[in-house]
Amino acid sequence: MSSLTEIKTPQDFSSHTDSLPPTTLLVISFQTPWAAPCAQQTLILRTLASSYPLQTPPVISFLSIDAEALPDISESFDVTAVPYLVLQRDGKVLETVSGSDAAKVREAVEKHAGKGGNTGKLGLPPALETTPRKEEEATDGRNGEAQTNGASASNLSKYAPGANDPATAPEMSSSAGQTEELNKRLAELVKAAPVMLFMKGTPSTPQCGFSRTLVGLLREKGVRYGFFNILADEDVRQGLKVWADWPTFPQLWMGGELVGGLDIVKEELESDPDFFSEYSVGQGKGGMAAPEAQVQPTAA
């Protein structure tokens, strides 16, 4: 059976693709190891790959690429968000799929490669939900009354402690106070400059292809901006994902409001070329914001 091959270097990618005949369907998955939808995508592709027999020459080849570790390859396929699937044959892109919807991924692969074996037995995972779940009712095992999302919806006056209940309330954790302090800091950071870029690395040395591309767009439009290297501050890196409800980086903020990542910024510029006009200092004259807006991470 076929398998999902991990590509670790540009040389690995070149040698692998050069070894394939032009008739082979290349299924390339761009992902990052820290994102849950990417883990879902990997599981989907491993399942699909195992349903296709290993042949010589190969009819289909499944590849996995860390989009941030290999930014040149990502940019060559115009990858702006992950997970992202590219189906290619003889050097020509046939189709792309954004997201980890198992049905869409399977449909795209089978459209160009034909059906494999019985993936139903292997269990393709369902698509991840991207919208909040509706409140679900559970039943309190002790008194049979309804609970919603873990909170009792019963009349508490009827409640009596059971024999196994703790004698006293659990000690309050200090994490709530820490979270409040971090959120206050994040609220200040996103307003540290009229345009704030939270990125991996710095504008002079970006540490991922998405950050480098977004920096290039800002410079091209002559936008003055502040930046924050999220790799140097884990609290901000993890906290901003939750506080902003946006799980990936880079993140661009304007006037204290989240614009989004590279893909959103590109969409905004396509629909409105003057999107950054309010913050531009002239075409080709882009630079950083005033030094006080170039926020530095706190010491670890």
Rank of each mutant, 00 (worst) to 15 (best):
D263N: 13
L240Q: 11
Q238I: 08
N229P: 04
F227C: 09
Y225W: 07
L252K: 01
R237I: 09
P203T: 01
D245E: 13
V265A: 11
V242E: 15
V236Q: 09
P247I: 09
G226H: 04
L218R: 04
R224E: 02
R219T: 08
G216Q: 13
R219F: 12
V265Q: 10
F249E: 11
E267R: 14
G209H: 06
M288Q: 10
V215G: 01
D233P: 06
T248K: 13
T248W: 11
V236P: 11
G222S: 03
S280Q: 08
T213C: 03
L269I: 12
L218G: 01
P250H: 04
A244E: 09
L252S: 03
V242F: 12
K241W: 01
P273I: 05
E267N: 12
L269M: 14
Q207E: 10
F198N: 02
S280I: 08
D235M: 14
L214M: 15
M199G: 00
G282H: 08
S280R: 03
G226C: 04
G222D: 04
G284R: 07
P247N: 06
L214W: 02
G261T: 05
E270K: 15
T202C: 09
Q207P: 03
G201E: 12
D263K: 10
D272G: 00
R212V: 02
N229R: 00
Q238R: 12
V242I: 15
Y279V: 01
V265D: 12
V242Y: 02
E267G: 11
K221Q: 13
F210C: 08
D263W: 10
P250L: 08
E270W: 04
T248N: 10
L262P: 01
F249G: 11
E220H: 08
L217R: 05
L258N: 09
F276M: 14
T205G: 04
P203E: 05
E268T: 00
S204R: 13
E257T: 07
F210K: 11
K266A: 03
G255H: 02
G260C: 06
P273V: 07
R224S: 06
K285S: 11
G201N: 09
D235H: 13
E220P: 01
V281S: 09
K221L: 04
K200D: 05
P203Y: 00
G256W: 03
M199E: 01
Y225S: 06
F198M: 11
F228W: 07
K285N: 15
A244R: 10
P203L: 08
V236K: 06
Q251P: 08
F249L: 09
L218A: 00
M288D: 13
Q283Y: 03
V223F: 02
M254T: 11
C208F: 08
Q283W: 09
W253D: 00
S280M: 09
G282Y: 12
T248D: 10
R224T: 00
